[in-house]
């Protein structure tokens, strides 16, 4: 079969990412079914295993979403006002099982009684932040193996005077060496033992940088002096709500 003018690799990958949905959804539902079929005196560990299975499915969904976004032409990304409070609430609830599994808390800091609305693509931003937060939760656990109380990943959202929105993520995990991490991505079989923190699930950071730029924003990442990293995402502020307030 031959279809002229079609980038077969991209089409095949997009189709594969889409086709993953049905079996993953089924796996998730089968875990619920098994949960219900277990005898009531089944050990909590068994139920936790089923919950972990659902968490793993959720992570696979996120990878499939990232793959689909990576294949999206960034010029076709629909930009819209994104309410960051609602987005943070949704991320927190989606990542609860991973937080429980790895005994790490997410701490969201948002301005009180003040809407924070950025211009971006909701789905892309959610997938990017979900990837960042999932990675941060995993590395935070590695860093504070003995002390679960110290495992806190912080996400701070703020309106800035310069007319944009800042989303800052802080964790205490190992620092990141971008050059070495990139090498590890390009040559996955040549495992470099000096790479303490691979490039955010290989795809996420590269993809995030490309998509954030397509949203007219920018992404910066730096190692903190006392350990951990900060990822700062800057996006333009949406003035939609300000205008609505003025009309009222």
């Amino acid at each position: 079969m031959s279809v002229e003018g079609v980038d077969f690799g991209s089409v095949a990958l997009t189709a594969a990412a889409r086709d993953l949905t049905a079996p993953l959804v089924l796996l998730r539902q089968l875990s619920f079914q098994l949960d219900g079929q277990l005898a009531t005196n089944e050990s909590p560990a068994t139920r936790q295993t089923l919950q972990n299975l659902r968490t793993a499915v959720g992570r696979t969904f996120n990878i499939a979403d990232q793959l689909r976004l990576a294949l999206t032409d960034e010029n076709n990304l629909v930009l819209e006002p994104v309410q960051l409070k609602g987005l943070c609430h949704e991320l927190n609830s989606e990542l609860k099982p991973l937080q429980r599994e790895l005994k790490c808390n997410l701490d969201f800091e948002l301005p009180r009684r003040q809407p924070v609305v950025a211009v971006g693509n909701y789905q892309a931003l959610k997938t990017i932040l979900n990837g960042f937060l999932s990675d941060a939760i995993r590395y935070e656990g590695q860093c504070h193996q003995q002390d679960a109380n110290r495992r806190i990943v912080r996400l701070r959202v703020a309106n800035r005077h310069s007319g944009d929105v800042a989303i800052e993520l802080h964790d205490d995990g190992p620092g990141i060496n971008l050059a070495r991490s990139l090498e590890a991505v390009m040559e996955p079989n040549n495992v470099n033992p000096t790479v303490a923190r691979p490039l955010m699930g290989s795809l996420n950071l590269l993809l995030a940088d490309r998509l954030i730029r397509a949203m007219n924003g920018r992404l910066t990442i730096h190692n903190r002096r006392r350990g951990g990293i900060t990822i700062e995402t800057i996006l333009p502020t949406s003035h939609q709500l300000t205008l609505l307030e003025a009309i009222r």
């Binding site: 049905a22 959804v25 089924l26 539902q29 089968l30 619920f32 079914q33 949960d35 219900g36 079929q37």
Partner: peptide
């Protein structure tokens, strides 16, 4: 349209 999913959901709701 996914009958496996529907059947599994039906089982879960019957139990629950």
């Amino acid at each position: 349209d996914d009958q496996q999913f529907a059947s599994s959901l039906a089982d879960s709701l019957a139990v629950a």
